[in-house]
Amino acid sequence: MEKLIMKIQVFGEGTPSDLQSPYGCVTFVPFTAKVESELFTGETLPGAVDVQVETPDHVRNMCAKYMFQGKDFQGNDCKLYVENNGYLQPMNRQDPHFNAVPRFLTDSPALGAYLCRQRFRSEVQGMDWGVEIRIFDVLA
């Protein structure tokens, strides 16, 4: 059984940078984000970026890397690094969301033992205001 543990709201910020070639393309999308959950509440530090690489056959890899500054569920100040990786196949481009795999690192002793394990998946979905990322514990 899965359990929703966190929702992250992502907002575009700045101008994307891209490179187009016959061998594929890459786009860097800067963003800001915030999260409010029972586990952690915070906002991104500068430097958050979503890197999208597309092959000539239109398979797209998305890798977002960002760090939050905030508070863990015990009220302690901490940082939470998130790396979210996913693939979008050409046949699935019309889907309103796609699945990815998040990885976490944190300096919070209260969060570290739980979040720094490989037991999560994410759903990334476009919204009117930006992107929502839902994090699920697949072993709950």
Rank of each mutant, 00 (worst) to 15 (best):
T41I: 10
E123G: 06
P56E: 03
Q94W: 10
L4D: 01
S21T: 15
Q89S: 14
I8C: 00
V10L: 10
M1G: 15
F28N: 12
R93Y: 14
K79C: 11
D128T: 06
V49Y: 08
P46V: 00
K65Q: 12
E54L: 08
M127R: 12
M62V: 12
V10I: 13
I5V: 15
T27L: 09
R60T: 15
Q74M: 11
P30T: 07
P46T: 07
M127C: 12
M1L: 07
I5H: 04
V26P: 06
F68M: 07
P96G: 09
A48P: 05
T44Y: 07
F28E: 12
A113T: 11
R60W: 08
N84I: 07
N84C: 02
I5D: 05
P16G: 05
V101F: 09
L115G: 03
C78R: 07
F11W: 02
D77P: 01
G42D: 04
G112V: 01
Q52F: 06
V35H: 04
D57K: 10
F31Q: 00
L111H: 03
H97W: 11
T27C: 10
M62Y: 13
E2G: 02
M6K: 02
D72T: 05
P96R: 10
G70E: 09
P30W: 03
F40E: 05
D95Y: 10
G70V: 02
V26R: 10
I5W: 08
T32M: 07
E36Q: 13
V131Y: 06
Q9I: 01
G75H: 00
N84M: 01
A48S: 13
V49F: 03
E123S: 12
